[in-house]
Amino acid sequence: MNTLRRTLLLGAAVSLAGCAALKTLSIEVRSFGQMPAGKTTYAFERLPSQQQPLSRAAEWEALAAPALAKAGLKPAPAGSPPDLIVALGARVSATALSPWDDPLWYRWNAPLYHWRFGMPPHSHPMFIERRYEREVGVLLRDRATGQALWEARASNDGATQGGDGMIAALFEAALADYPKANPQPHEVRVTLP
């Protein structure tokens, strides 16, 4: 019985580790600037395009707030001026890829499939793959002077749009270097909740 119990516990641990690995994202990050000490409060700024009725700016702010808190920043109390102004950006763009974009397209047996069934190579949707590029940007400016102090971009790509959890993870990765900067593209690993 004791051996069976250990085996079940080991199996559960392996399953949980496998699930965690599936939820861990590899995100490319670059950050720039130099952050002076003592600036800890912020307020969001929205560009004119982010003030339009269909803008997702309020959603981005809600998704970025936990990452800002993890970086040691907090919203300015009501009625008091913030130290920093935070501008956010996010985009998800789709790219349709064809197997012929790859010089080794024969690995999908595309010609064999089409010759066998008499279909022109470009007519079957099974050979079109859609990739999504996801990116966020964070800009911190000094409220008093308007000077840009620190900037970061985080991006990754995949087979799905990713949803709000993905955008939140990108904001977390973008702020992982804060308050330091690392302009070289580098990988940050983030685990989705």
Rank of each mutant, 00 (worst) to 15 (best):
K74H: 13
V190T: 14
S15P: 00
P82N: 07
G38Q: 07
P36V: 01
R46F: 01
Q52F: 11
S26P: 06
Q34A: 11
F127H: 05
L25F: 04
L175I: 06
A181W: 13
P179K: 12
P81D: 08
R5C: 09
P53E: 08
L68H: 05
A154H: 01
W150S: 02
V136F: 04
R131N: 03
A43R: 14
L4N: 11
I27M: 04
A17G: 12
E172K: 05
A71E: 03
L175Y: 07
S155L: 00
Y113F: 09
S26N: 09
R131I: 11
H124N: 15
W115P: 02
L149T: 08
L10W: 14
P81V: 11
I128R: 13
L175K: 09
N2G: 12
K180L: 05
W108N: 00
A87S: 03
L140W: 10
K39R: 14
L8F: 11
R56L: 11
A17Q: 04
A110P: 01
L112T: 02
E135T: 14
Y132P: 08
A176W: 01
N156W: 05
E61K: 03
L192W: 07
L140P: 12
A20L: 12
L84T: 06
W105H: 12
E129R: 15
S123F: 08
T191C: 14
T7I: 15
G162S: 04
A58L: 15
E172R: 07
A110N: 00
I27V: 10
A144N: 08
S26C: 03
V14A: 15
A65V: 15
T24S: 04
G118F: 02
A159H: 05
A67H: 10
P99E: 00
T160C: 04
L9R: 15
A17Y: 02
R130M: 13
N109S: 01
A78P: 01
P75N: 06
K23W: 07
